[in-house]
Amino acid sequence: MKSVIRTFLGAAVLTQLAGGAGLAEELNLYTTREPKLVEPLLESFTKETGITVNTIFLKDGLPERLEQEAAASPADVLMTVDIGNLVDLVDRGLTQPVNSEALNAAIPENLRDKDGNWFALSLRARALYAAKDLDLASFHYEDLAKPEWKGKVCIRSGQHPYNVALTAAYITHHGADETKAWLEGVKANLARTAGGGDRDVARDIMGGICEIGIANTYYVGLMRSGAGGPEQEEWAKAIKLILPSFENGGTQVNVSGAAVAKNAPNKDQAVKLLEYLVSDAAQKIYAEANYEYPVKPGIPVSPLVGEFGELQVDATDLTAIARERKTASELAETVGFDN
């Protein structure tokens, strides 16, 4: 009991310190990325710089909490996934521009905001999982709507940010009308109601519910590595991963990224964390522990990810995808994708 009270008082004091001058070097991180994913990165950051990181893992409502905390917010660094979420933070005025040589040098120009309001830290591709014995070597996103796949497709909710980004990318290639027809086609091909997570696609393929499905690349790395337990290794063995492409483009990628909060009380430390996250050491952790594609050119991907083949990133600008997000989400509702 006593220790718990101390924890709470401690938390209160920490918040105060963060709002004030800050005695020891520390910074506060608001992240929507799961604790286990960011912990290895933060631990090695603290070891290297001596800066302690206080974390809160939020899922939904990160922007709302920041907006309400306003000037008193202790948040220094904001970490999230999906380009839409990053652009949303900027649009709501919750970030501040950062101009750092190290960041600009490490991250290609198309993977960061031109004013330095957000920076991509890793990439993930929207891939095709297919039953191992399926005679299939390449795939176009457009094919998902073809009648030959009727009753054979598994996918998560059409409203999930990953699928909204894919649909938005589809709009940038084909326009809204064709995208609507495509969504209707995919919907007609579903083997089960759209829902669950990306990993369920692998499990459902193994369970014979469907033959193909759309999911992110890194889940296969996580499952094959055994980090999710022996059962998930089995699921991953039942499938093969194909990097699909648009007929007139490449593979759709999304990002995980970070920004410095508008009212960051420890801005210097915040920038240091961002710079650390694009260092070779940190980018290797993204590649090897998280099975994502590093943003920094020259950092090798994990061997498990290398097996997927060369990633040909679709040329569409990320911010263009973010702009089509609303239309994409409305289309998913119009065709009743999740019903």
Partner: peptide, 19 residues
């Protein structure tokens, strides 16, 4: 608050990651 985790949030973090 910062640095406070309950069992439910811990569970959620793991489940969201699939572990």
């Amino acid at each position: 608050p910062l640095n406070v985790e309950t069992l439910a949030t811990h569970l959620y973090g793991e489940a969201a990651r699939g572990t």
